[in-house]
Simulated assay, not measured.
Amino acid sequence: MRRHERKRARRAAMRRLVPKVHVGRTGKLFARRSRKQRVIIAILVLAVLVLVWTSLDSWPARIGISAILIVATPALTVLVLDRRI
């Protein structure tokens, strides 16, 4: 009985000493972003898209800049926020 208690106390002491590492899923889109960060990113992208579509007259330019923005958003997010998606 005492051996069991010592073993339980030793395990409890080790749990307090060893930091808990939560390994979550990282494969989801925007997995490590807070809700506030995701909203800000979406608002900025939509604002730039509205600006592009209202200020340019050329359809190829509109489509090209929109495609570049959509492709570059994840890379810019990583550079600005310094985290992986």
Score class of each variant (00 low, 15 high):
residue 48 V to N: 07
residue 60 P to F: 05
residue 78 V to Y: 01
residue 51 L to E: 10
residue 80 V to P: 04
residue 35 R to E: 06
residue 21 V to Q: 08
residue 17 L to A: 12
residue 70 I to G: 15
residue 52 V to I: 15
residue 7 K to T: 11
residue 73 T to Y: 00
residue 11 R to P: 02
residue 48 V to F: 02
residue 44 L to R: 01
residue 31 A to R: 02
residue 35 R to W: 00
residue 7 K to L: 10
residue 51 L to S: 13
residue 5 E to Q: 06
residue 54 T to Q: 07
residue 67 A to V: 15
residue 50 V to Y: 00
residue 64 G to D: 11
residue 17 L to G: 12
residue 49 L to E: 04
residue 30 F to A: 12
residue 79 L to N: 11
residue 62 R to I: 11
residue 39 V to W: 00
residue 57 D to K: 02
residue 36 K to S: 10
residue 51 L to R: 07
residue 12 A to I: 05
residue 61 A to N: 06
residue 53 W to E: 03
residue 60 P to I: 14
residue 76 L to G: 13
residue 28 K to E: 09
residue 66 S to H: 04
residue 21 V to H: 06
residue 12 A to C: 06
residue 78 V to F: 01
residue 68 I to V: 15
residue 25 R to W: 00
residue 41 I to H: 03
residue 3 R to P: 02
residue 28 K to G: 11
residue 46 L to A: 14
residue 30 F to S: 10
residue 32 R to S: 15
residue 34 S to I: 08
residue 85 I to L: 08
residue 45 V to R: 00
residue 15 R to E: 04
residue 24 G to I: 11
residue 2 R to N: 13
residue 71 V to T: 10
residue 85 I to C: 09
residue 73 T to M: 09
residue 45 V to P: 03
residue 69 L to N: 09
residue 55 S to K: 10
residue 55 S to A: 14
residue 81 L to E: 05
residue 57 D to Y: 03
residue 57 D to V: 15
residue 76 L to A: 15
residue 31 A to D: 08
residue 72 A to H: 05
